[in-house]
Nucleic acid binder design. Structure first.
Lengths: 200, 200
DNA sequence: ACGTTTCGATACACCGGTGTATCCGATACA
DNA sequence: TGTATCGGATACACCGGTGTATCGAAACGT
């Protein structure tokens, strides 16, 4: 399944052949067919696995932020400047692990989800769960700073997630060695920009 | 080329066969090969064409907003409430034409762009141009209201474009008859939410 | 009105991927 | 220790898509 994840991410679901996947895992096609019926089945299984992993990472972070934020706020008396926000967000992003392959896979899934109603429903549920989880992080953050968001925090999570993914996408296209780092930089820039806009 | 655009959008670049494209256009594969060398070449040609069309629509809108906004502002004395913003954005969105197929095509292109450095450069240039164009619309809007954005308007355009596309994506997945309408609704909701956040 | 050229159709050879049927060996189990 | 089961390998038949070569006809220029 790890091999399949890589292959799917690298070349896409259609360009990926059963042969490629089997070969990457040092198996033959025969081995594949004795474990899965179709490529699509495996792909969907991977989608679910990936989503669970990602959700677990987010859950870890929500536990984390409950610890980190209050101690940080102890120093600055309940208010947080944009400057201080940077490192927090950065450390949060670090926890989410390697994203390049995952994002490619996710993009592939997205496309499938837009074309297939069943997959679409599944994808929206997954995204909803992720946004919800992320939303509770944001909620906790707002809470800790003593603000109440004007926008539903799940919706806010959605918007932030989208802009993060857009940044990641741009970084991937630009290429180079440190994709993840440039993505984070790009995202931080836009996030702080938005907050600046928000404050003006 | 129209046929190819449809087929590419509906099933994706890899699943699309030369046969399908030719058939959709009531031609044979022979006709295809006497006009293009490969499927990919046609795809990229379509990407360029689509981008030009979209850019033209945006340019139309920027001319439009310079007319519409000042007259509207005459009434409300240079300030615009979120309530009044709605119809303006809505009418702007209407001008951008049918988006479902275009977005599917674009998503396909995006994926290709993330995997192929050359296409990636091309895509980023296109996106940059679109963001720039859209940015000048936003700039004009800010100008008209007498505000100066805290964030570079091109960056802001980028973020807004991303959240619009995310809304469109969600609407497509939800399916139903009025995809475009629900996408706009979803987008407006998030946009106004953001502005509310901005104002609080 | 006559070459020429261009566009599309037809036919063919080729290849890569699929899925299935059969076989082998190792492991589990009685 | 013998047998059943299961994971994987091998081999085969099949199909859909590709690209090219050849041909006809219609459009074009002179």
């Amino acid at each position: 399944m790890d091999a399949a994840f890589e292959v799917f991410s690298e070349v896409g679901i259609h360009a990926a052949s059963v042969e490629m996947i089997a070969e990457r895992a040092d198996f033959t096609r025969g081995a594949f067919y004795s474990n899965f019926d179709t490529k699509e089945e495996l792909f969907l299984a991977l989608a679910e696995r990936g989503n669970n992993e990602r959700l677990a990472l987010l859950r870890g972070s929500v536990a984390n932020i409950d610890v980190i934020l209050p101690t940080l706020l102890g120093n600055s008396g309940g208010k947080l400047t944009a400057q201080e926000l940077g490192p927090i967000v950065a450390s949060f992003l670090e926890q989410q692990g390697e994203n390049r392959l995952w994002f490619l896979f996710q993009s592939e899934l997205r496309l499938l989800a837009m074309r297939d109603g069943e997959v679409g429903k599944l994808y929206l549920e997954q995204k909803r769960a992720a946004d919800h989880e992320f939303g509770s992080i944001i909620s906790a953050a707002f809470d800790a700073v003593g603000l109440t968001p004007a926008l539903d925090s799940v919706e806010l999570a959605n918007v932030l997630m989208n802009t993060y993914e857009a940044a990641l996408q741009e970084a991937i296209m630009r290429g180079g060695e440190h994709v993840q780092e440039s993505a984070h930089q790009l995202f931080m820039q836009r996030l702080l920009g938005l907050i600046g806009q928000l404050a003006s």
